[in-house]
Design a protein around this nucleic acid. Structure first.
Ligand SMILES: [Mn+2]
Ligand SMILES: [Mn+2]
Ligand SMILES: [Zn+2]
Ligand SMILES: [Zn+2]
Lengths: 142, 142
DNA sequence: CAACAGTTTAGAATTATTATAATGTAGATT
DNA sequence: AATCTACATTATAATAATTCTAAACTGTTG
């Protein structure tokens, strides 16, 4: 992601008003070297740290979902109790570290292209995603 | 799954007391031709239909989680709002039909074995799961 | 700068899940 | 077979996550 790119224009392009909350969220989410994964909770903390004024929880939810719908964010669900959003919206796979609860992008070359030999009749494939759960090697239960 | 197999013994084997609720849940879940996918809500409905006495919601949650921990059930998370349990606990992949919200097992031969070329250092792979999202072919948005 | 439509907000409402604590029961012990 | 005890079930309350509501606010247009 390029630094200091014009989020106001970017928001306008997809039909979202460049309100200060949305621009601030863009900065927090996209004004960084690498893409990253976060929970709603993570984001609320990040925003309250980086903002002078307060932001309503409802606004965080609304804006995240607006961004998701517009393709600025992608949701990655780990289990019923843990769900992440991803600023990397391209098709990619993940490792999930069960020790640290960390979600890690799979390098494009680390998994061969998945070949679906037989699809459900009359349906088109929207996405193919792999989740690799990993954990510490020395986890011998007593 | 074999019909009328002895659930009481099966439960004892893994150290769960064969109480009447647990045996009834085994019957509802495993006394059928094919494995299946269900939400907690689905299961509550199934149980209240098939049972003479009432079963507490807390017991359904407790028992599902007991079964999950013992490897009788597997959780499949679609997104933060939708999570299924699977009576097929073997490693397998899924199609998710976004039109009908139906989760469908992938046939073993329909996806080639996933080859993870590079894993996170010092971690072992616990599972590799593919989720293929599909939807109706003629979904042209106006 | 007036007008409007879309946005934010605090707080209430809803939903899903878990905790609590009293009662019930399976399986072991007499 | 009666008793015992640990574990399970239950109704209900509590908690947590998310969404709704309706009033106030603000970016955009003309
Ligand atoms: Mn969502
Ligand atoms: Mn669970
Ligand atoms: Zn990612
Ligand atoms: Zn399945």
């Amino acid at each position: 992601m390029p630094k200091n790119c014009n989020f106001i224009e970017k928001l306008r392009e997809v039909g979202l008003r460049p309100t200060k909350q949305r621009v601030k969220m863009c900065e927090v989410l996209y004004n960084r070297e690498k893409t990253f994964h976060f929970t709603i909770n993570d984001l609320v903390k990040l925003l309250s740290e980086k903002m002078n004024q307060k932001i309503s929880l409802a606004t965080v939810y609304n804006t995240v979902h607006a961004f998701e719908k517009k393709g600025y964010l992608k949701e990655i669900s780990i289990d019923s109790h843990k769900s992440y959003f991803d600023t990397n919206t391209s098709a990619h796979h993940h490792f999930f570290d069960e020790d640290t609860q960390e979600l890690i992008d799979c390098d494009e070359n680390d998994i061969d292209k998945i070949n679906i030999k037989k699809n459900i009749t009359g349906k088109k494939i929207n996405s193919v995603e792999v989740l690799v759960r990993v954990a510490s090697d020395n986890q011998t239960q007593k």
